[in-house]
């Protein structure tokens, strides 16, 4: 009898461990998570404008139907990536998520204090390299450090009125998820990028 109870207790403890393991592994094995769903819209490394949410045809669950949305899955394995977009004057925001769908960074047009998006996403190691060899073209960029190797970025642009939708969608379609990190922003800069002893922060 006591023996049986001990085995039952062991089973309960093992069950607790299984519970924890399942909860922790669900994001890696889910097949309807945001990352997997976004793969439907097109190849990685580019922004894809999602159709506006309408009853019956929501591209992703619980997207705001008053926001135009574009998503891009990216990988940092081949170096930092740069996101560039010219946005409309009204509210917009951009959020960066890891592969598991957790938010790691977000920003809106007012906190960005500018009307365009110029965001460089780098891993901690890549950021150290960027600091040692600053790229002049990135002086105006917002450089963020994220501890992830893969993830996705999502831009939301407010559409106050259906007549403004084409403009918002055009801006999102022109958004670049793999802009040249070394390319000069406004003025042309010399091609070689290794410039030691410039103003490292």
């Amino acid at each position: 009898m006591i023996r049986g109870l001990l085995f039952a207790l062991g089973g309960l403890i093992l069950g607790g461990i299984i519970h924890i393991v399942v909860i922790l592994l669900v994001p890696d094995f889910a097949d309807r998570d945001a990352w997997t769903s976004m793969g439907r819209f097109g190849p990685d490394g580019a922004f894809h404008v999602l159709p506006m949410s309408e009853p019956g045809t929501e591209p992703l669950p619980y997207l705001d139907p008053r926001m135009a949305t574009a998503v891009c899955r990216f990988s940092l394995e081949n170096g930092p990536i740069r996101i560039k977009a010219d946005m409309p004057d009204d509210f917009w925001s951009i959020a960066v998520f890891n592969r598991r769908g957790s938010n790691v960074y977000s920003l809106n047009d007012r906190t960005a204090e500018r009307s365009d998006i110029d965001l460089v996403i780098a891993t901690p190691v890549q950021l150290v390299q960027l600091r040692e060899n600053p790229i002049p073209a990135l002086e105006q960029s917002i450089v963020i450090e994220v501890p992830i190797s893969r993830g996705f970025a999502l831009i939301r642009a407010f559409v106050a009125d259906p007549t403004l939708l084409p403009g918002a969608e055009a801006a999102l379609r022109a958004a670049n998820c793999s802009a040249d990190v070394k390319a000069p922003a406004p003025p042309p800069a010399p091609a070689p990028t290794v410039e030691p002893d410039t103003d490292a922060p």
């Binding site: 922790l24 998570d33 997207l63 959020a95 769908g101 960074y105 920003l107």
Partner: peptide
């Protein structure tokens, strides 16, 4: 986000609003 929230979001496929949004 806690692991339960992560798991729920992964199952629903929802993309939450970031705190800066």
């Amino acid at each position: 986000a806690d692991p339960y929230t992560e798991a729920m979001l992964a199952r629903s496929g929802e993309v939450p609003l970031g705190s800066g949004e």
